[in-house]
């Protein structure tokens, strides 16, 4: 069963065709200021629509990044108009933002920095969230937070994780459990809506994401927190696809972070992993995901696969642009910025 029509597939592929190309990236990284980047996006790329009416000469870095992310979501919403009544499945992408906002709210409760939370709030997603985003911004203690998320899937975990003092709060653990709930729900939905080969393929697309997130967690916990194997096992999401349970276990029990990376280089993703030393693990994971999805959009005709791939690829494009904007804002050399781009 396809939830999206052929038109959706054609539209998504057409939008992918208009993506930022290598020559654009080369031109962008040579720009001297955020205003120059904004001007290029406004006049030379398909971002001209979202940039229309914007005073690009005075635009703030954060505002530009916010606009790009807002546009990304708008494109996604526009594509869904070509789908049918079950297209709501695709709002799975909101889940990450929900968890992010809850975690930011928890930090706000402990540190009281409401401005940090509010300024980064994705207000364009508020309508789709399972709780009231604006009410979340007004929360001042844990009880109020529980009240706001009472009818969301996250309530039970947050209730069970209520600390005596916020300083004792287990941020890593709670975030992992919230993520696990999110993925469990997602897999359950996939099983209820799809069947046969298609279900397996969609599930595998998400399993790749889960695995890559797990590998990021393993790497970071080893590299920066020197965490024990048991602690790592607690925070990873136990879904296995390309990496068997044994392979993940081997990574968890590796002596250090470099060994984790080494094992990644020996896996089926070896062709996508950069040989450059000191490359961020997040970069490696995104590059792998990007390569897989690029292959899907090029060769698949199934509207669901095409849409999901397009969203990954276009989100990576937004990440690239954000990297360029930040790189230029902080005067990073163009070749250094170029090395962070995934294309």
């Amino acid at each position: 069963m396809s939830f999206a029509s052929g038109a959706l597939s054609a539209k998504a592929k057409a939008m992918y065709g208009r993506r930022i190309k290598h020559a654009d990236y080369q031109a962008l990284i040579q720009k001297k200021s955020v205003a120059d980047v904004a001007s290029y996006l406004k006049h030379e790329t398909y971002y001209s629509d979202i940039m229309a009416g914007i005073n690009e000469a005075n635009i703030h870095r954060g505002q530009l990044e916010m606009l790009l992310r807002y546009d990304w979501f708008n494109r996604f919403s526009a594509l869904l108009r070509y789908g049918n009544e079950k297209s709501h499945f695709y709002h799975y992408i909101i889940g990450h933002n929900e968890i992010e906002q809850i975690m930011a709210c928890l930090h706000m409760i402990e540190h009281g920095d409401k401005l940090e939370l509010v300024s980064k709030m994705p207000v364009h997603l508020a309508h789709y969230m399972s709780f009231d985003l604006f009410a979340l911004a007004k929360v001042s203690d844990y009880e109020q937070l529980l009240e706001v998320v009472r009818h969301s899937p996250y309530y039970q975990i947050l209730l069970e994780s209520k600390p005596r003092y916020m300083s004792d709060f287990d941020y890593v653990g709670v975030e992992s459990r919230l993520t696990k709930i999110y993925y469990d729900d997602l897999i359950k939905t996939i099983h209820s809506l799809f069947n046969g080969e298609k279900r397996d393929k969609i599930e595998s697309m998400f399993t790749v994401l889960i695995e890559l997130n797990n590998i990021i967690k393993i790497y970071r916990l080893k590299k920066y927190y020197n965490a024990s194997a048991d602690k790592i096992r607690e925070v990873i999401t136990p879904h296995y696809g390309s990496f068997s349970k044994e392979m993940i276990n081997k990574m968890i029990e590796a002596d250090d972070a470099d060994e984790v990376l080494e094992q990644l280089r020996k896996s089926r993703y070896k062709n996508y992993v950069s040989d450059q030393p000191f490359m961020y693990i997040e970069y490696q994971a995104k590059a792998i995901n990007y390569a897989i999805n690029r292959q899907t959009i090029n060769f698949s005709t199934d509207p669901d696969f095409v849409l999901m791939s397009y969203m990954v690829l276009s989100e990576t494009e937004v990440d690239n642009l954000v990297n360029i904007i930040e790189g230029i804002r902080y005067h990073i050399a163009p070749d250094k910025i170029a090395s962070l781009l995934i294309e």
Partner: peptide, 10 residues
């Protein structure tokens, strides 16, 4: 920006 107006209310 229009998005910021919604935040201002908070």
């Amino acid at each position: 920006p229009v998005e910021s107006i919604k935040k201002l209310s908070v």
